[in-house]
Amino acid sequence: MELQDTIDDEPHLVGPALPPPSVKNSEILDANHVEYEIVNGIPCYQPDHVIDGQVKVFERIGFNDKVGATFLGLGADDKELVIRVAPIDTIPHVVRAEAGFLCKVESELQDWRHFSQVHKIFMTDDAFHMTLYFRGGPTLEQCFELRNKFTFGTVGRLSSDVLNIIRCAHKHGYLLRNVDLDCFHYDAASRHLFMADISSLVKNVTTENGSPTATYSGTLDYAPLAHHSNENVGARQDLESWFYQMCHLAIGDLPWKALRRSEAGEKKKEFRTSKEFVELPDVFHKIAEIVFSEDHSVSEEEYTKLSELTEQIYKDIGGISDYEENMDFEREPTPDEIPRFVMCRDDEIPTIPEEEEPAEEEDNAN
Rank of each mutant, 00 (worst) to 15 (best):
E98G: 11
V39I: 12
P87Q: 10
A31F: 03
P92A: 00
L72I: 07
P47N: 00
V50T: 12
N64K: 08
F101M: 14
H119N: 09
K79G: 04
G53H: 07
I51W: 05
K56R: 14
I91K: 13
K79P: 01
Q117S: 09
L72D: 05
I51R: 07
N40S: 11
V67M: 01
A31V: 10
D48K: 08
L74T: 14
L74P: 08
I38R: 04
F63P: 07
F63W: 13
G68P: 06
G53S: 01
H33T: 09
K66M: 12
Q110P: 00
L109N: 14
C103T: 01
I61A: 02
Q54Y: 07
F101R: 13
K66N: 09
E106V: 13
G68V: 04
G73V: 02
K66R: 09
D48Q: 07
D48H: 09
G75A: 11
P47D: 01
T90D: 08
H119R: 04
V95N: 06
E106F: 11
L72R: 14
N32M: 06
K66I: 12
V94M: 09
N32Q: 09
Q110N: 15
P87G: 06
N64A: 13
G75S: 13
Y45M: 06
E106L: 14
L81V: 13
E106M: 15
